[in-house]
Amino acid sequence: MTSALDAVLARKSSSKVTYAAPTHEELLTLVAAAGRVADHSSLRPWRLIELRGDDRVRLAQAIAKAEGDKKPSSKPLRAPLLIAVVASFRKSSKVPRWEQEAVASGVAHMLSLLLDEAGWGVFWRTGSYTRSKAVAKAHGLEKNEVLLGWLYVGGKPPRSRPERRRAVDARHHVSPMPRPKRSKG
């Protein structure tokens, strides 16, 4: 079994996928695990929308409408499964809106890791049209919801050569808390 660290270090977005996809039941298992992200007050301020088949065509038409194009967008047809990530804000005096959106993003990221580790190709797509009325309507969003983007999911195509991913130099991103400056006097 792969450790969480190994899975995270091996993760790579798959911008091209094949037309194989996890079943609805397989997806539910992964979503149940992804939903265990840190969630202040356990609000679960998120939901996911599964788009397959003609749902992707309807999304293509909504994106075209949002962008003022006459021809439907081809983007939603690039993967057999799209998972719309929705921040679904809850009323809370303790948990601000930004924190609830962070939870929804955390679920999406965790789900992308789990999908990748399970052998699926996945990449997260966003765009200005995620906040358009036409796209919100196509997804049936409520007034308290915003679309954060879609996870595009499909089979991983065979690689002709090993992919190289630049390592993160953590030293550039981690620092100690600054010490207070001494006042003169």
Rank of each mutant, 00 (worst) to 15 (best):
W46E: 04
A7P: 10
Q100K: 08
N144I: 02
H109G: 05
K184Q: 01
A104V: 08
R97E: 15
K71F: 02
T130L: 11
P72W: 00
E25S: 14
R161S: 15
W120F: 11
A66Y: 00
L113E: 00
F89W: 06
S88W: 00
D116Q: 03
L141K: 05
E26N: 10
H172E: 14
L28M: 11
S112G: 08
P162I: 11
I49H: 08
A4D: 10
P96E: 11
L148W: 06
D169R: 12
R179M: 03
L59E: 04
A102T: 11
G53N: 07
A4V: 15
L114F: 00
A134K: 08
K65L: 10
W150R: 13
P76A: 13
D54F: 09
F89V: 06
Q100H: 06
L59T: 03
D69R: 14
P80D: 07
G154I: 04
R166Y: 08
A21C: 03
Q100C: 09
G127Y: 04
L51K: 00
P80I: 03
A104N: 04
L48K: 12
K133G: 07
A4R: 06
K70V: 04
V103N: 05
W98Q: 14
L147E: 01
H173Y: 13
P76S: 10
V95L: 04
P22Y: 09
Y19T: 13
R11C: 12
A64M: 13
K16Q: 14
V31R: 09
T2N: 11
Q61T: 08
V153D: 08
A134H: 01
K65Q: 15
S13F: 08
E163V: 08
A4G: 11
P158T: 13
